[in-house]
Design a protein around this nucleic acid. Structure first.
Lengths: 336, 336
DNA sequence: CTTAAGAATGACAACGTTGTAAAAATAAAT
DNA sequence: ATTTATTTTTACAACGTTGTCATTCTTAAG
């Protein structure tokens, strides 16, 4: 690899002058700038970020640790948002995935430390509560889509309660009065909070208990989450005969659509369907198109980097960690 | 940040001895090892990878550049595979996404060069042909899910022709004789090659032209790809009345399922459905479960890193680039 | 033409490591 | 006990940058 000194030699100036040109520092004669730039182009010189870091003690790298996140399509958007923001701010993201078999967060954190990351973002697949060791206090650290069990980190999560409340209210507002909520695994915070929002809306409208029903579409068997949306949907719809179904995720809504098609019910007329996620093409591929609460993952990713940067500039001073709840947006289509 | 010298001072040895302990070099007295390890623990020392790189000229970093890949769920698995393999081999992946608005591959390549990446993986969203500048010849470079327009890079792609051939043969073998192929955008290599495989199988079985039909479920309007699976599926099924439908992707299969449910046809009995992708939970959430050709993205990601490592150790010597076609696996479920 | 001030350039230390070679300590052989 | 061989430790240069400060070159003023 060609170094700054080789460039200097070819350009016939001192290597410090080359450094000035490379870093766009002022005070270099135009003819020298030209000579240097020619030499750089000719030799194909690229500054060595590592050497620069050693001297400057500034890596411009932010670590991104995720629990499986980058394989789950729903929350890939977090990564994308973080990456876009990081790039805009002249930072580079270093991405690590937890090994699902031996999930060792600390090991990855160590890796980030060795690369002299300036901060760490930890992203989770589902909105949940996660335990962190003291090690995570080393650098400015922000949690996305999860909170710490001791609430001792700045976190960015979707406002699932508000989302549950809002979509339920919309259902009620449009006149639906017998609603089945096919919720996610209740161990997940998202499920709990949405349920609270759901209940709050029910209460405000004074809907009696017999007119709604909550079931879970995920079962945890030996640590693995099993999707039972199919059977549950069929059973709930046939037994309870709701006039609207609220699904915990778009994938479950597919299942509901299929059941309803088979029963000959017209979605959006005979029965309403709503959901959470707004996952890629799914809501638009369904017919009628699915109305769903979009989870603001992309925005959350951006916010995470923004928060990290703010922590860095404030020198991570131990003020109270902040907990951000990002509102979700209803994509109002045709299914209710 | 604490340095090796501070550790040496506390341990009462020279900093070179500390370096030996850190790098597990032999020839340090046991009592010194202990003193050093104590000091390291007490001070929380972590080796500075950047400083190490400057001296050793070995970054252990592999660059991963993708065109939108990490936002498209189908191929996120590539990234995961690459990351797993990299981690196993003691390498770190540095991930960059192309900005879809201003897709400047070279800029990201430059970034990797500045970090002294040892090699670059370029991953594409769809199996396609991509043009690369000379810059990409700088480091050992491997393409995943795409090939270069001049075939001048080692590439790893799914064997889409074989996949198309195989799944079609399976359909024919099971007795289906009137098959509609709802193919992806024909500009994409995946679509072209699957079509070749499809036709080859048709020919081998001597199926006359009138008994099959190929339509496209994606339209390119002003650079944007628009999904028209819905209308096409409905139209083809009603007009052509196939006894089997082969879908270009699982998402399109959802659409086909919905159409068939409405028409009262029983999938797997009245009509067969097959697809490509094996995308997350979708094939299993459908009923009957969808038989689909799984694209070997995870494996391709792993292979990419393996190839990079082999190129690195062979010093990237300009032998002919190799083109790997990875076979796809049929997940044989219940839909045909 | 001389001088002073300011602009441009250069010399060199420093960053935290690794690599090399020399020095010191220990063990083995005489 | 002395010498030799071996193991362990240390001193110091090197890596490619950036930061500091001294030096040289320009330009303008006297």
């Amino acid at each position: 690899m060609v170094t700054i000194k080789q460039v200097a030699e070819l350009a016939g100036v001192s290597f410090k002058t080359v450094a000035r040109v490379v870093n766009k520092e002022p005070g270099v004669k135009a003819y020298n700038v030209e000579k240097v730039e020619d030499a750089i182009a000719k030799l194909g010189y690229r500054p060595n970020k590592a050497a620069s870091l050693v001297r400057k003690k500034q890596s411009d790298v932010i670590g991104f640790i995720s629990d499986e996140i980058s394989t789950t399509p729903a929350s890939v958007a977090i990564l994308k948002g973080a990456q876009d923001m990081a790039w805009e701010q002249g930072k580079t993201l270093m991405v690590f995935n937890l090994d699902p078999k031996r999930p060792n967060k600390d090991k990855l954190y160590e890796e980030c430390l060795q690369h002299r990351s300036e901060g760490i973002i930890y992203g989770a697949m589902y909105h949940q509560s996660v335990e962190f060791s003291e090690l995570f206090k080393t650098l400015p650290t922000v949690l996305v889509n999860c909170v710490s069990t001791h609430n001792d980190f700045t976190s960015i999560v979707p406002d699932d309660e508000l989302a549950g409340y809002y979509v339920t209210k919309q259902l009620l507002y449009k006149g639906y009065r017998r609603i089945a909520f096919l919720n996610l695994n209740p161990e997940i915070m998202a499920a709990q909070q949405r349920q609270q929002g759901f209940l709050k809306a029910m209460q405000e409208y004074g809907i009696p208990e017999k007119q709604w029903r909550i079931d879970t579409i995920e079962q945890v068997v030996e640590g693995r989450t099993v999707n039972i949306a199919g059977e549950v949907a069929k059973q709930v719809i046939q037994e309870f005969k709701p006039d609207a179904v609220l699904c915990g995720k778009d994938l479950a809504a597919i299942k509901v659509y299929l059941v309803l098609e088979r029963l000959g019910l017209t979605i959006g007329k005979d029965i309403g369907v709503a959901s959470f996620d707004n996952w890629h093409d799914i809501p638009e591929i369904l017919e009628p198109q699915l109305s769903t609460m979009a989870l603001p993952y992309y925005e959350m990713g951006r916010m995470a980097v923004a928060q990290i940067l703010s922590l860095i500039t404030n020198n991570n001073k131990a003020e109270q960690p902040t907990h951000y709840k990002v509102p979700c947006l209803l994509f109002d289509r045709k299914s209710f």
